[in-house]
Design a protein around this nucleic acid. Structure first.
Lengths: 211, 211
DNA sequence: CGGTGGATTGAGCTCAATCAAGCAGCGTGG
DNA sequence: CCACGCTGCTTGATTGAGCTCAATCCACCG
């Protein structure tokens, strides 16, 4: 199976694929970072997912044979293993559990998206940002002496596009949290210092009470 | 296959299943109407989908064998065909295309949800309500002399829960549209009179220009 | 050292939530 | 058949969260 893969290399700002293109290839990221975004006609884009090394992307579309629903843009220089359609079908035939797996993954993503939908519809910007940080920490957190560093290139506007807010709102809220010692900000970096307090914020409708 | 189904009957306000329960049964609605909602801890609920007769629900969960992600509540008195786990597995083994079908359906729903997520994150309340009405018209529209009637029990607060707004906002916007002849409102009813204008509203960021 | 792109912060404004009242259609029971 | 009550709908007034614009600031890189 590995023999049938080839290596895809993509420069920052370039794309693995665009939304609505036929889903012909599935990837596993080896190195770099990818943003998976959704563009609306006219509308601002939305950031659905950040892909870190060792994660797959484009897999569900390629296996099911539907167009890619999202655009995959390289944030940094990227290397990824790529399997094309024939390799996929033969692999899936050889190992039916692969399809089963893809299904499980798809279902999990679906539920996550529903959860985010609910958050967006019912919760405050503060809560959504907190939740997003926690999710990212879970995905790409790296503990060190200072706390839990989110090991991604993560700008304020990335966070804005993930939470359905503006870059300014994100900045304000992060600064406020830094002042209260919940975390430490850097250029395209966030270091969480008090995970439990952040969790509380994520669940608390009224923010002002716990300052 | 039909032999292995049984009939499920549910009274208004009662439930077919609750979210997070194991997905043991799949249904096809014969008569009535169902709301599929997502409840957050603490948060207000969100209406993800309305099920009309002849549509399936709970199918993906039951086939894949994961917990239901949503709660299915009967709006009116409902009758549905129900298949339990053993019947499903044997049917799927006999007709593998069934699984294929379920997958296609799931993928389509996934894309729809992503689209709605983007709308919620980037568009105005007005646009979202317009889009939702169009989607519902597509799902359950019935043309008559007056226009296109959405053939569902559809309260203002249902629309609010679908669009991530408040019942008041929905009421105001629908009234405004009625004043301009786009549609006609009724108690838990909406009749669309000018589909093309509504489509324009759905796509137009600045509403005021086309009054 | 200047330039470039990200981040911060203030001021003003707007959209939509909330609160509060009252209205209207519909079903029920006297 | 009417009165009542229930539930859904409307509408006004007010408020506030978060958007937008604009002006810096800061870190990193050539």
């Amino acid at each position: 199976m590995y023999a049938s893969a080839h290596l895809a290399q993509v420069e920052p700002g370039q794309f693995f694929f665009h939304q609505d293109e036929p889903g012909e290839t599935m990837y596993v990221l080896i190195e770099g970072q990818i943003k998976m975004t959704l563009l609306g006609p006219e509308g601002r884009q939305v950031l659905i997912r950040i892909v870190a090394p060792c994660e797959d992307f484009g897999a569900v579309s390629a296996i099911v044979g539907t167009p890619y629903p999202l655009t995959a843009e390289a944030v940094t220089r990227c290397q990824a293993l790529a399997w094309d359609q024939p390799a996929i079908t033969s692999s899936v035939e050889a190992y039916p559990t692969l399809r089963e797996n893809a299904l499980q993954v798809a279902v999990r993503r679906f539920h996550q998206l529903q959860a985010r939908f609910r958050e967006l519809a019912t919760e405050s910007a503060e809560q959504r940002i907190a939740r997003t940080l926690l999710r990212l920490a879970d995905q790409a957190g790296r503990s060190n002496g200072e706390g839990m560093l989110i090991d991604l290139t993560l700008s304020r506007s990335d966070l804005a596009e993930m939470t359905g807010t503006s870059l300014y709102t994100v900045s304000r809220i992060l600064s406020q949290w830094e002042r209260h010692g919940l975390l430490k900000n850097g250029r395209e970096k966030v270091l969480i210092r008090d995970l439990s307090k952040l969790t509380t914020v994520a669940k608390t409708p009224d923010t002002s009470s716990l300052i």
